[in-house]
Amino acid sequence: MKGKLFWASLLLISISWIVNAFYAQSKMLKEPIFLDHAIYKPVQHRDYLTFYYLTNANDDTSVSNVYFNGIYGYVIDDESSDPIQTFPHYALQKAMVELEVAFDYLQDGPLSNDEIQVTFSDGRGMTAPIGELTIYEYDTLDYTLSPKGGSGGGYWSMNWYEVEEDVTIEKIELNLSNHFAKYVTVKLNSPSIARAYDILNTGKETGIKLADLELPIALQEGENLYINWKFDPKLSGFIESSIVISGTTASGKPFTEESLLYSQQPYLENEDVLKIIEERENAK
């Protein structure tokens, strides 16, 4: 009695394996899919970029280097190539590359690309659409708005500046295309702003929305300026960019400050992954 059951079970197990294997194979990606990135970054001679990409669940290779606009970026091989998230058939991986930019390479202006050449640890390569990538020359800091600190993580993030002399803020822009800008909410707060817009509280979620702020606005020496920002959780990509604040000081000198704007490491649900894959398939 036991004998027949034993062999029948082995047969069923084999069939289950074959069915599962064929199903899993049908879900496999032909090549990794990089998420939608919006990177606008001032870089120095050595700087870092982070990319996120989806692979098949059984892919244990990692990025070894990237190339774009004459610049190479190498992955510093110190951490494990474990994915940051796993899904039934896919995995989300992170690649942090160290760029080597020749000293005056960016003096003629920023370099942009919407794709990068990627080489993986097993030798295979691909041209990966990555969204919007722009790098430009790192400007020495202008301390008209002096950075005092900030905090991030969680829902809202905050950058804090002290105004070093009386200024008039004339322009505030996000270094992002509309495609990405719609996922960001920016609020500004400071004593002058609070007075102008009847804001009673301070704290991360407070302030006047950027869209509602009428420019130009005057800020006074010694004021604390808070730039609060958050990202829509529906963002399934990665943003590393800045909010550009420009204006003129009381003494007539123009100034520009780039305030960091960055999203957290992407956290995806399985539906998000499937949606990304479907969109990428359709785009082809």
Partner: peptide
């Protein structure tokens, strides 16, 4: 084991 092919590693 046969089902691990179609379930997330985690």
């Amino acid at each position: 084991s046969t089902f691990t092919l179609n379930i997330a590693l985690d």
